[in-house]
Amino acid sequence: MLLKDKKADLVIGYERGSSKRRARPVVIRADKDVDRLIFDDTCGPSLVPFARKALRATPLGTRVAVVAKGCDGRALVQQIAEGQFKRDQVVMIGVGCNGVTDHRRGASGEKREASCERCRYPNPPVYDVFVGEPVAAGTGDEFAGVAEFEKLASADRWAWFEHELGKCIRCYACRNACPMCYCEECVVDQTNPLWLGKSAERPDTTLFHLVRALHTAGRCVDCGACERACPLGVRLALLNKRLEREVRERFGYTAGLSMEATPALATYSEEDKQEFML
């Protein structure tokens, strides 16, 4: 309908993938292909990196419609706040999301992704059309996992991260899947200076994940794309979640809710807490 009315020049959404348990991104250009679009609990991969590419590659005036579940909608909002494209370039097709399936852990509908379990934004904060009914947000503490982990002693936390990040093979699938990792050249690929060694040695790996967490602090929408993309199942989102809480508690900012607000780490308040300063 959007295509027919020329309200959008193309639509980015999901279509059925190679198996019943998988969905994959698709670009629809003609009205006749619209029926290929699906949305269900298999529609995990973030569409935002595709959308960003499409939006930036197309000539000005092109309108791109994007199917946006809660987290993807927030990522789009965040990217608009970061000037990656203009609001009027994108038509947001809002969908309510009940969470996507953790296909590593169970069959369709059985086990939701960890990030979906704690999700508080199943519906996009901004949309142009909404398909279906909004989904009620979950309750309970989204930071419970973080709080649980923080009970561990410093050395135990270190041991856990050592073990967890020890699995990393530096394939960068997490980064490539992340809707907020859109640098032209990622810091790990820069050679002058060589901030991060190319090896899979522990300090370099740890540093890579630390830097990624810092770079997405106040921007991460906890879509879970990184963990979903990781071939080794590294639990990457824990640190991100901790920083999400930090930014919300300390600076009163939640990523992906406002297109106007200055991102938390690009601004300040004179009243920011500074109990840690000597």
């Binding site: 970061e82 000037g83 990656q84 991102p263």
Partner: peptide, 21 residues
């Protein structure tokens, strides 16, 4: 300019309005 994504964080942080997109 080849590395810049135009995210505007520098513009926002500059106290002298010395940067613009």
């Amino acid at each position: 300019p080849d590395r810049c994504t135009g995210c505007g964080v520098c513009v926002a942080t500059c106290a002298y309005a010395a940067l613009e997109l």
